[in-house]
Design a protein around this nucleic acid. Structure first.
Length: 491
RNA sequence: GGGCUCGUAGCUCAGCCAGGUAGAGCGACGGGCUUUUAACCCGUCGGUCGCGGGUUCAAAUCCCGUCGAGCCCGCCA
């Protein structure tokens, strides 16, 4: 049974209708590691629907979150914004109305492409609208009980004057430099490190501290299930406190937890926007079809970490996907976005043909036809996936897979010349890819040249390197007549 | 100090949640074609399922313990 179906069946026992929360913070490029939360949630959503239940996804963008520090990708002057809510900081690239929107917009576009339907809620709006007001009041009123629970669960000491609320300083605009000094029915009083002191309203004047904010939103948005990173899942972590706070203070059952592991970039460690080890989602989905992006995540149980290699490793995952798509594999099913028609042309093959055809769709189709594919069966699919092949190859593929057809003279030894001449004579248009391949060995033997040298000679003439795509189907794809001409031209 | 994950064939891993004859891919080896070029085919080899105990008619699977590897929490979120 697929992990998403296991979770769905447990959720269905509780209720037939679910609201699944997600909450990636828009503090930097939203990357593939973050995407795991979204895809995991969506897999559960789809499994629930397949099981006859109802499910919807909510995405809470915490744009009230303060900028922690000046990340390496930010200009010097951003130091002055540290501590201010992301929605109040200018876009570092100047193209959106705020820092948070700059990172949020491309992410939301990506979700659309990935077929993940979400109800988007921004923390800033929810606070301003007063949705949190009852929760803030409750938290302030019960702050001692809350502090006690946090002490018990985390073992950490909290000062007696601790408040679970972070006022937004009206003077310096920071949210992490203020201290609550008191509250009444209408205002929360504070002082700030900047020297300012004043009062803020319950509607947008600040936010609950993380451990409370999370719990409050469960109740406000009626959340019943939520995937979250393993950092929240550790003992004494925010889910542990959240569970008790939800039950004992907020009188709301904690959502069904789906902890997930990080996605590492092979050889580089965990993806962290702050460290610049990222594959931004918006960029990645230009290079890989959405169903593959989903599959990378869905094929692995959430609690297992993924060591992701966007080069050869990814190519192997694509092979696996293409193999399983015709056998109704559950991971594949949960990964497909809409009705995609897959042809039998492997991604791997398209990469070679695409390069030969210089990414021209028409030429690519002609070559594939010459290789025995039926045009009407593959045209639509090839047109769609060819675009991905091109971008993937340019951005992520290892150099060994790339080649350029060359022209002009090529320096060859006498043996090589003799081989090429004879090989060219024997090549004929009716040969299959395999026959063309075998012919190399035959002619090499006849001419008395090492097969190794023979192959190298061919590659040097065609692509100017000592290696390339498997000779048989490469020559077949290029066209035997064309290859013959090229051989004559070269020496 | 606590939590999670992993430990199964030479390598990468599946199987474990609902116990019932240990699997796949790659590699190696042999053959089809005496010979590599990441889309040949067929076959063979290959595992005390980390270790120790327990439950059971039966354990890779469940329970307890233990060793090793990695990550996370104990600032903030």
């Amino acid at each position: 049974m697929h992990w998403a179906d296991v979770i769905a069946s447990e959720l269905i026992e509780i209720s037939s209708s679910h609201r699944i929360a997600t909450g990636i913070s828009p503090s930097g490029h939203i990357h593939l590691g973050n995407l795991r939360e979204m895809v995991t949630a969506d897999a559960v959503r789809r499994a629930l629907i397949d099981a006859g239940g109802k499910a919807e996804m909510i995405y809470i963008a915490d744009d009230l979150d303060p900028l922690r520090r000046r990340y390496p990708f930010l200009p010097e002057k951003y130091s002055e914004y540290v501590g201010m809510p992301l929605c109040n900081i200018p876009d570092p690239s100047g193209c959106h109305e705020s820092y948070s929107e700059h990172f949020l917009q491309p992410f939301l576009e990506s979700l659309e492409i990935l077929g993940i339907p979400v109800e988007v809620r921004r923390a800033s709006e929810m606070y301003r609208q007063g949705l949190y007001e009852p929760a803030i009041k409750l938290s302030l009123r019960e702050k001692d009980k809350i502090a006690q629970i946090i002490r018990e669960v985390t073992g950490r000491e909290l000062e007696d004057d601790w408040y679970p609320f972070m006022p937004l300083c009206e003077k310096c605009g920071r949210i992490n430099t203020t201290t609550v000094t008191g509250f009444d029915d209408h205002w929360i009083y504070y002082s700030c490190k900047c020297g300012n002191a004043g009062r803020v309203s319950y509607r947008g004047g600040g936010k609950l501290s993380w451990r409370l904010d999370w719990v409050a939103r469960w109740r406000i948005l009626q959340i019943t299930c939520e995937p979250f990173g393993k950092d929240h899942a550790a003992a004494g972590g925010s889910y542990d406190t959240g569970k008790r706070l939800a039950r004992e203070v907020f009188d709301y059952p904690p959502p069904y937890p789906v902890p997930y592991e990080w996605i590492h970039l092979k050889g580089k460690g965990a993806m962290k926007s702050s460290k610049g080890i990222v594959i931004p989602v918006r960029e990645f989905i230009e290079a890989i079809p959405p169903e593959i992006v989903r599959y990378i995540i869905i094929r692995v149980k959430p609690e297992k970490h993924i060591d992701f290699d966007p080069g050869f490793g990814l190519l192997e995952i694509i092979d696996e996907f293409e193999e399983k798509i015709f056998e109704r594999d559950r991971s594949v099913q949960l990964s497909l976005v809409k009705e995609v028609k897959y042809s039998e042309v492997p991604f791997r093959h398209l990469i070679v043909v695409g390069q030969i055809a210089n990414w021209d769709t028409e030429r690519t189709l002609e070559i594939l036809e010459r290789n025995g594919y039926k045009r009407n069966e593959i045209a639509e699919d090839v047109e769609r996936r060819l675009k991905y092949c091109k971008v993937w190859l340019e951005k992520y593929a290892p150099e060994t897979l790339k080649f350029k057809i060359i022209s002009g003279k090529v320096e060859l030894g006498d043996e090589e010349k003799k081989f090429v001449e004879r090989y060219s004579e024997k090549l004929n248009d009716n040969m299959s890819a395999e026959e063309i391949h075998t012919l190399v060995y035959e002619v090499a033997k006849e001419v008395g040249i090492d097969a190794n040298k023979a192959f190298k000679a061919i590659y040097r003439i065609l692509v100017g390197k000592e290696q390339g795509p498997r000779v048989g189907y490469f020559i077949k794809s290029l066209g035997v007549d064309w290859v013959k001409k090229r051989f004559h031209e070269a020496y």
